[in-house]
Design a protein around this nucleic acid. Sequence first.
DNA 1: TTGTAGGCGTTATCAC
DNA 2: GTGATAACGCCTACAA
Lengths: 325, 325
Amino acid sequence: MANIRDLAKEAGVSVATVSRVLNGYPYVSEEKRKAVWEAVEKLNYTKNIQAVHLAKGRTAIVGVMLPYIHHPYFSAIMEGISKEALRYGYQLLLFQTNYDVERELEALERLRMRQMDGLIVCSHEVDWEAFAAYQGDGPIVLCEHVGEHDFFAVYIDHYQAFVQALRYLVKKGHRRIGYCIGRMTGPNSQARAAAYQDVLREAGVIPRRQWIFEGCLFLEDGKRVIEQWVAMEERPSALLVTSDQVAAGIVLQAQRIGVRIPEELSIIGFDNDPLAELLGITTVALPHFQLGGKAFRLIHHWLETGNVTRKQEELPARLLVRDTA
Amino acid sequence: MANIRDLAKEAGVSVATVSRVLNGYPYVSEEKRKAVWEAVEKLNYTKNIQAVHLAKGRTAIVGVMLPYIHHPYFSAIMEGISKEALRYGYQLLLFQTNYDVERELEALERLRMRQMDGLIVCSHEVDWEAFAAYQGDGPIVLCEHVGEHDFFAVYIDHYQAFVQALRYLVKKGHRRIGYCIGRMTGPNSQARAAAYQDVLREAGVIPRRQWIFEGCLFLEDGKRVIEQWVAMEERPSALLVTSDQVAAGIVLQAQRIGVRIPEELSIIGFDNDPLAELLGITTVALPHFQLGGKAFRLIHHWLETGNVTRKQEELPARLLVRDTA
DNA sequence: TTGTAGGCGTTATCAC
DNA sequence: GTGATAACGCCTACAA
């Protein structure tokens, strides 16, 4: 593989001139410029990007940490990130963690090792102290509400989103309300739990522990939920379901086993997945795609300018009433 | 940021010794080893991975080229790749191309620049010559049947898979058979087209151009298909749908607008998506996850050993008869 | 407008 | 066992 020195020799110039030509700097005579490009052609030269990274101390790579890529929620965020990354000429390094703390820490270590210039954290298990410890190693953007903590963050106000949906149900006369969620940990989930407590209390209803369904991430989980629901003695009359995939699973399986929705059970999903639209599922639309895009731009802006206008950005969620609630 | 020389000074040894300790080589006295680790601790040292890459000439990064990550088909492959990559300590660099030839070539250029050690191509628009031109720059694995061409490849025999499903329909008495596909280009699609021609001819039926629905990738496309179907003068009685997402879109919208499936229209999907299972859609199960895993292992084996046992691997597809055909 | 030389942080090859 | 020192390939003052 030819290198910059070979080019210099071939073109009869210095490596500095070669570098200038390669990077499009001015102040190079047309003659030498031409000679360099000819040498590039002749020697079939390509830049070694590793060397560029080392010399510049930057990689134009951003890492993305997420639990699983094979999930509509995360792949939507990823799509948003990807689009912006492409636009600004950045590469994306994927860290699929499966919510395994070891792997999450590995991703942070990689930031420290300068494998990438910044990191977008779509979701995580490890607690904030871990991120705080790596803040000096490059910009880290979290996709969740971080309150007073000094992190870059772009997030949906899940407390408000939940309140919105719960109030709607209460207004419709529901008193026995439950919800389905992926995990109980993490700020997003805790915001939802708080909203659940608050709104139900405000409506004079006692929240019930057994009406909270955990581990709801995929379509199949919805199937499980409705089957559990059927088996319950005291059934909720309405369910908030934090993923449209799961909501779809509930609705479809309900249809199969003869549970009438919304008559027997009202369902409000989240995301506004195309599947929810097709099934007429009432849902809280969440701007995942934009969220990914904003996350990237936050990092990018910091990397390119070194200063911050906003550290945190909030995105809106809105209820789309359809047929299931 | 402390570097290896700072460590050497701090520990009172040479950089060579530091490197040996850091990389766990033998022949270092216990005493010096300890001194080095203490220096690491004291200076809060972390390896600069860029420098390692440059010095070693390898990155332990594999690139993944795919059109869109936000699609169950590709994210399933990605999940399979990801799992294996993790297992062997490799990182994954994502190239989302949107089937844009420019971006596909950009990914290949990056391989050439040594940004990664190898490349997995999940799907592409550019023709094979392009890949051939970059073969010297690192292992490239294609996820499609490459025939006699000398590429690494792991693939599903889409010709056979299509034949299998078509014969089933013919046997059931169908004569007016159509199909839905993402794009017409690419070897996978061409294999399907060939199977379509062959099986229908063999059954004494004339294939019809207007019974082939292009641009079928997402759930929403299924909705469009069934609406087109309804508007047709001569309607096919059965449709092969190369994505369960699209098949689900068809089935759900059919249900909405009162088209009975399978009585009026039989549907066979592909993938064996959980959604197809939940909807009782007859489908051809495709092992995407394994495909991704195998693709990675092919690259990995080549990178680690430098020799090849198999250049190509075929994976099976099997028809799962459920309710829609 | 051009060239020299030092630096980026490791690894790896020699001698000792 | 250990330490110099030369790669790895590029960028970038600084000097001319």
